[in-house]
Design a protein around this nucleic acid. Structure first.
Length: 1009
RNA sequence: GGGCGGAUGGCGGAAUUGGUAGACGCGCUGGACUCAAAAUCCAGUGGUAGCAAUACUGUGAGGGUUCGAUUCCCUCUCCGCCCACCA
């Protein structure tokens, strides 16, 4: 009898005792990192929807182990956030206690499913040993100048007097009290994800994500190429910048529309004749949410600014200026030029009798007349008319030409904008990571004049004004450094002694310990200077060799003149005191490009050999010598090495004082001033400034739920590390994630945030891959039996424990995989569970059907099954893999049994799906654990059928079957087909016009009808 | 309004990507075992007609391409998800 409860308990214990799922950081086998999104441990417990994804990745992880990989399949808890906090408030309990309780339930449930997680690596975002590093990473963003404070509107409930999350606002009202919600400005921490927008799009080309996931990412970032056009205001001579993606329609621009909030409007107050009307319109629109303002079927409203006139930069014609609420202040420049080729503009113009004209002819001639007569609005692309010298061009070409034309006159500039906004990183809530910053009044008032000096040394043929130096200088100055970049003597024919003297003279001007950046010969100079000077940090970009070498110079004989070669050689004609440099330099960084014609791999190896033990090496792609000649104007990887020098009163908490732990609080509700509950705890808020020791206040905002989940996959690699979030060595072993699966609902935000976070850490040199996930798939939702979404409130949540108790974990796993296509939503079916349970019972009974000699069809079907299951797992077609295994078992029963050897092979392919029952049977008939055996291979000769049964059609209708050799010739097929009586009947008295034969597929005989 | 999916028996779903539509499972019908039930086993199961052979019909609707269309193209209807006046 198949006793699932007993079997499953037995094997779960054995696996645990043997530690078979523990991942080995030092394994010599190829690695495979399987990742499934970690759950939010809600009070509802694990439900069958979670099980779908976890089981799928478990099958893949188990198969990879059998394929010979060293597999990491970890799990953890994304536990900060509103649901727990609100539950804690309601029940007057501590969020930490509620979380611990929920996790215990989830954990018990997961263990009962037999998932092959490495529980030694369990992470919990609310654990101080975890969020210490989330805080540390926030400080990295802060130091890099990517975290900043900005006033952002929050949802404010007037009666509760607290800020609300978007999801707490239901239909414009407060979820708790039903009261009015208004927008209120609050200073928020922001993270500048938009700086990574371009890379977040471009690097998608390097990863294997489902196409629709890539598309969603690209659309969310929403890159749009356009131009900023300047419109003069006649009365004030001011220029209003307008962002447009349709500069091709500028000749039809007949009026200008500003957002009601546009900053210029107040400045023009005295000029606006109808100010009262304008003011009341602005007041009326202020409280309307953006979604409503921008809703397509809303009637357009607006007010003209009487007394203000703009000039069309292309035509010079005068344009009325209006305000309307469909224009949003925070998108683009908060202003649009309006014309007959935009429905919104068109509607507004029609309503208020504003001037309109067309400048595009649509490609569809049938609507041309109506467009010309301004009866309908044409928004598409067309051919230009009434557009001066651009007449006859098509839209795409015209955009390019008009932008160039206006740019020459200084009236426009090509610009790329993104839909993506910077990341609002503050919450005024308790249950999140405290932001580890301290506000110090004393420091805010102090002039931080002790600027750090950075000396930049250029190379041969370059100057302080060429190549990447100007951009680097201005970037570092913006960050608060004192940058010195001066031309070295005799740039065309550098002499080492002259350059060294020049370097010495430069350094003499600096009092503090300087940072040196050098390029090519300048890098060599910087290194030589470091032999005798203390240097805080030295960045050597494409440094020339440490000493001359005949072999090295021989390769430049054709490239350089004799004279040049001599200069090059002479410059390096001295050794380098490696030990002295190591002693004097605080941090040593080398930058090399893979295709540098001058700095060959030989030189790179020299530096690696000499400084490899202490220095950091950055290798960039396709940057040549990074000189002026090779067109190098910017070195972002060098710029990224420099942190912003603090310029205000926000002081980072030093690393050794992290984590800033959440204190125990009486009340978890936000305060009525809109601050987080932390603000009410004086003892926690008051602290001393880590910088100057005077009295200071802690930041009381906490981080969003997305923070901890943006890097958890890195922590899994080295979850116990207390020196770093993960060691580089271990990260090098496991990263990137080879296969990441999760819900479709996370394919925009979480995926984008975590990719961004990883890229940032990559730029800081803490992780080694720029993309965190090599492959991403998403699974569909499991719906309730009636097709609606499962939710605790509807009471239709299916608890996996119930199925495990009645039919077992193997049945649950198998059923969830059999239920339907993995990437699509599927309704749960209680009755469907029975089918796979019966199958498992039939599998278990196979023990009693072992024979000495099995039918050839059994062995053939076995190999077909191995092939199909192997392929289907890779493509996540679990449902058809299981169907094939069912077919195999049916065949075995039909054919009277199978050999012990065949049974063992079959058990191996079943093992990732139903591991418990398989181990139980494998123990009885085989040796060792099934899960540690090699994945079976199939015999291609057995898989291919020698004879096939194919249909015979007459005029496309099947009239008979014939069984012929798989590779039968057309002649043989024809003979077989014409031997079928029913075929002959349908051919009677008709002439065969055509005979179609597709080997192994079909025969079709075409006759006159 | 935009983007992406989807629509196949009573139900969940297969179909080697243009080649016998309905694999596999559920359900249902009949039978065996049983005092009986459950479990198990055997047979049948898209619809219509027929004892049957077989014929007609059939993948949301309509049209097209093709020897042949669930698959490709066009038009339309409905459903789901994501995003929504993005200039």
């Amino acid at each position: 009898m198949y006793n699932h409860t007993e079997i499953e308990k037995k094997w779960q214990k054995r696996w645990k005792d043997a530690g078979v799922f523990r991942a080995d950081n030092a394994s010599k086998k190829p690695k495979f990192y399987a990742l499934m999104e970690f759950p939010y441990p809600s009070g509802a417990g694990l439900h069958v929807g979670h099980v779908r994804g976890y089981t799928a990745m478990d099958i893949i992880a188990r198969k990879r182990r059998m394929d010979g990989y060293s597999v990491l399949y970890p799990i953890g808890w994304d536990a900060f956030g509103l649901p727990t906090e609100n539950y804690a408030i309601k029940t007057e309990r501590r969020p930490a206690d509620v979380t611990a309780e929920n996790i215990a339930i989830f954990k018990q449930q997961m263990k009962a499913i037999g998932l092959s997680f490495d529980w030694d690596r369990e992470v919990n975002t609310t654990d101080p040993t975890y969020y210490k590093w989330t805080q540390w990473m926030f400080l990295e963003f802060f130091k890099a100048g990517l975290a900043y404070k900005k006033a952002m509107p929050i949802n404010w409930c007037v009666s509760c007097k607290i800020g609300l999350a978007n999801e707490e606002v239901v239909g414009g009202a407060c979820e708790r009290c039903g009261g009015v919600v208004e927008k209120r400005d609050k200073e928020q921490w922001m993270i500048a994800i938009t700086k990574y927008a371009e890379r977040l799009i471009n690097d998608l080309a390097t990863v294997d994500y489902l196409e629709k996931i890539k598309k969603q990412q690209i659309d969310w970032i929403g890159r749009s190429e356009g131009a900023v056009v300047k419109f003069y205001i006649k009365e004030t001579s001011e220029q209003i910048p307008v962002f447009t993606t349709r500069i091709d329609t500028i000749y039809s621009g007949t009026f200008l529309v500003l957002a009601p909030e546009h900053e210029y409007i107040d400045l023009w107050r005295s000029l606006i004749a109808n100010w009262d009307e304008v003011a009341s319109y602005r007041a009326a629109t202020a409280s309307i949410p953006d979604i409503e303002r921008t809703s397509a079927d809303r009637e357009r409203t607006g007010v003209g600014l009487k007394g203000i006139t703009a000039l069309n930069p292309a035509t010079g014609e005068e344009m009325p200026v209006w305000i309307s609420d469909f224009v949003l202040a925070h998108y683009g420049t908060g202003a649009v030029f309006a014309d007959a080729h935009d429905q919104r503009d068109f509607d507004l113009a029609k309503k208020y009798n504003l001037p309109l004209k067309t400048s595009l002819v649509p490609p569809d001639p049938s609507i041309k007349e109506a467009v010309e007569r301004l009866e309908i609005c044409f928004e598409g692309e067309g051919t230009l008319v009434r557009s001066g010298e651009f007449d006859g061009m098509i839209s795409a070409q015209a955009r390019e030409k008009i932008t160039a034309h206006l740019s020459e006159q200084g009236l426009a500039e090509a610009q790329t904008t993104y839909k993506l906004r910077d990341w609002v990183f503050s919450r005024q809530r308790y249950w999140g990571e405290p932001i580890p910053l301290v506000w110090c009044d004393a420091c805010a008032k102090t002039d931080h004049a002790r600027k750090e000096a950075v000396h930049i040394f250029h190379g041969w043929f370059d100057s302080a004004e060429s190549g990447f130096i100007p951009a680097l200088k201005s970037n570092l100055e913006q960050k608060g450094y004192d940058v010195v970049a001066v031309d070295a003597p005799n740039t065309e024919a550098p002499v080492f002694d002259e350059w060294l003297a020049f370097g010495e003279a430069q350094l003499a001007k600096t009092h503090s310990t300087p940072t040196l950046v050098g390029h090519s010969m300048g890098a060599h100079l910087a290194l030589k200077l470091a032999e005798t000077h203390k240097v805080k940090r030295l960045v050597a970009v494409a440094p020339v060799g440490m000493q001359p070498s005949d072999v090295y110079f021989a390769q430049f004989k054709t490239k350089l003149s004799k004279k040049e070669l001599a200069i090059f050689r002479a410059y390096q004609d001295h050794g380098m005191d490696v030990e002295a440099i190591k002693r004097n330099v605080g941090e040593l960084i080398f930058v090399f490009s893979n295709n540098d014609p001058w700095i060959t791999s030989e030189i790179v190896e020299q530096y690696k050999a000499a400084f490899g033990d202490v220095a950091r090496f950055i290798f960039v792609e396709e940057m040549g010598h990074m000189s002026h000649d090779s067109g190098c104007r910017r070195v972002p990887f060098v710029e990224a090495l420099f942190d912003r020098v603090r310029a205000d009163g926000w002081i980072p908490v030093p690393e050794d004082q992290l984590p800033i732990e959440l204190p125990d609080v009486e009340r978890y509700e936000p305060t009525d001033s809109g601050e987080s509950p932390l603000a009410a705890i004086d003892a926690w808020v008051k602290t001393t400034c880590p910088e100057c020791g005077s009295l200071a206040r802690r930041e009381t905002d906490t981080m969003p739920n997305w923070a901890g989940s943006s890097w958890y996959f890195l922590r899994y690699a080295d979850a116990q590390n207390d020196k770093a979030f993960a060691s580089k060595k271990v990260l090098a072993h496991w990263m990137p994630v080879d296969w990441y699966n999760g819900g479709m609902e996370h394919t925009t935000l979480h995926l984008l945030y975590s990719r961004f976070w990883n890229k940032f850490l990559y730029d800081r040199g803490y992780v080694l891959t720029s993309e965190p996930y090599a492959k991403r798939t998403s699974h569909g939702l499991i719906l309730a039996e009636d097709g609606s979404k499962m939710s605790k409130s509807k009471g239709n949540v299916v608890n996996p424990n119930d199925i495990i108790a009645s039919h077992g974990a193997d049945t649950l796993r198998l059923y969830e995989m059999f239920i339907g296509p993995f990437d699509q939503p599927v309704p749960w079916s209680e009755q469907g569970v029975v089918g796979v349970y019966k199958f498992l019972k039939r599998v278990f009974e196979l023990s009693h059907h072992i024979v000495e000699c099995e039918a050839p069809t059994v062995i053939k079907m076995l190999h077909k099954t191995i092939k199909k299951v192997t392929e289907d797992i890779e493509a996540m077609r679990f449902n058809t893999a299981i169907a094939q295994m069912m077919t195999f078992v049916n065949t075995v029963y039909d054919e009277g049994g199978l050999t012990a050897a065949s049974l063992l092979e079959f058990l191996l392919v079943l093992s990732p799906f139903a591991p418990h029952i398989v181990e139980e049977m494998y123990e009885k008939h085989g040796q060792g654990l099934a899960m540690t055996q090699a994945w079976p291979s199939f015999d291609i000769a057995l898989v291919q059928d020698k004879t096939v049964t194919i249909g015979v059609q007459v005029n496309g209708k099947v009239r008979a079957d014939v069984t012929i050799a798989a590779d039968a010739s057309s002649k043989e097929a024809r003979k077989a087909a014409l031997a079928e009586p029913n075929v002959v009947k349908h051919l009677e008295g008709k002439e065969i016009k055509k005979f179609v034969y597709v080997q192994g597929r079909i025969i079709n005989i075409v006759v006159d009808s």
